[in-house]
């Protein structure tokens, strides 16, 4: 393994760590407060294309170490895509199978990617009629497989697995601390399983108790894959409200328009959840005026072309002869 030359013996050596951090890139033209240095942490530079590489690897290693995998036993996981893609690729590269239980509304690109990465798909139609206690159809079906076919499946359960938090305590947090030379004042995150928010914030708060943590969430009824509105957050056991100073609810359509701006003015081909974070960061920058902020950009826009067109129909103009 040589990070300098970027020569590796296998794909696992490329996974991010303090010695091999994902890049921080400064935002220039979309920064509304010049005294405030704003950086994006490009998680799509990880080997399987998203921030989820960190949690997937930590959960997989933990299961391996505990002897839970092998002899025909693989994984089952409810996933909106990124965790599944990382898990499937990692699992297959280590000789295990993965069954991914996916809500129907997940973009087709992600479903196909899951299959390409080697996952077996179970697609469930969620949100037939909102009900208390119903939970999430995909989580329930994955739990059913893990319980009824425990000889074939173990469920890492990213929504409850402390390894998801630990991954960020061990990698994302220390990376940011080192990359900013301890000068970070604001951390901007989105909320899904909350592993990234909780783990990274916990580490950085330990270094600097005055660090501000800002979480963005899309408005209710949103269409931003991978993210959760507060009303949907009860499925995650990893959410720690006490770490979060500001919880901003942002019109989810801005996720798409800001993502497009990132693509077209900063050269950052960021996905919609990054667009939502940028919008939240801009609001805080206008309020706080000075500091050093880091936004965690979970993935790039390549998986979301269909969603982008859905929310910015003008993108489709001129695409046919």
């Amino acid at each position: 393994m040589n990070h300098q030359l970027r020569v590796y013996n296998d794909i696992f050596e490329m996974l991010p760590s303090e010695e091999n951090p994902s890049p921080l890139v400064r935002i220039n033209r979309l920064n509304p407060a010049p005294e405030f240095a704003l950086y994006a942490k490009l998680e799509w530079m990880n080997p399987f294309g998203s921030v989820k590489d960190r949690a997937a690897w930590a959960m997989l290693r933990d299961l391996e170490e505990r002897g839970e995998l092998g002899n025909g036993r693989g994984l089952v996981e409810p996933t909106s895509g990124n965790t599944g893609i990382s898990l499937a690729a990692l699992a297959r590269a280590r000789g295990y199978h993965l069954r991914a239980v996916v809500p129907n509304k997940v973009p087709l690109e992600k479903k196909i990617l899951l299959k390409i990465a080697g996952a077996e798909l179970d697609v469930v139609s969620d949100e037939l009629c909102p009900a208390p206690g119903l939970g999430d159809g995909s989580i329930n079906l994955a739990k059913t497989h893990a319980k009824a076919s425990s000889h074939r499946y173990v469920m890492p359960n990213q929504y409850e697995n402390e390894k998801n938090v630990e991954a960020h305590l061990r990698t994302t947090g220390p990376e940011i601390w080192r990359q900013t030379e301890g000068r970070i004042t604001h951390l901007f995150v989105s909320l899904g399983t909350c592993g990234t928010a909780t783990g990274t914030a916990r580490f950085l708060r330990g270094q600097n108790p005055r660090l501000k943590v800002i979480a963005v969430q899309p408005t209710e009824g949103h269409d931003v894959p991978g993210l959760r509105n507060l009303s949907q957050l009860d499925v995650s056991r990893l959410f720690d409200r006490s770490l979060i100073d500001d919880l901003l609810e942002i019109d989810y359509k801005l996720a798409y328009t800001r993502a497009l701006e990132l693509c077209q003015t900063e050269g950052l081909l960021a996905g919609p959840s990054s667009g939502l974070i940028l919008e939240g960061a801009r609001r805080i920058l206008e309020r706080d005026r000075a500091g050093l902020g880091v936004m965690i950009f979970s993935d790039n826009v390549f998986k979301y072309t269909a969603n982008m067109v859905k929310h910015i129909p003008a993108l489709a103009a001129g695409t046919q002869a």
């Binding site: 469930v124 037939l128 159809g137 079906l141 497989h145 009824a148 076919s149």
Partner: peptide, 11 residues
């Protein structure tokens, strides 16, 4: 079940 796959997954 509403989801007719659920029984096969486990009952």
């Amino acid at each position: 079940d509403v989801d007719t796959k659920a029984y096969d997954a486990g009952h």
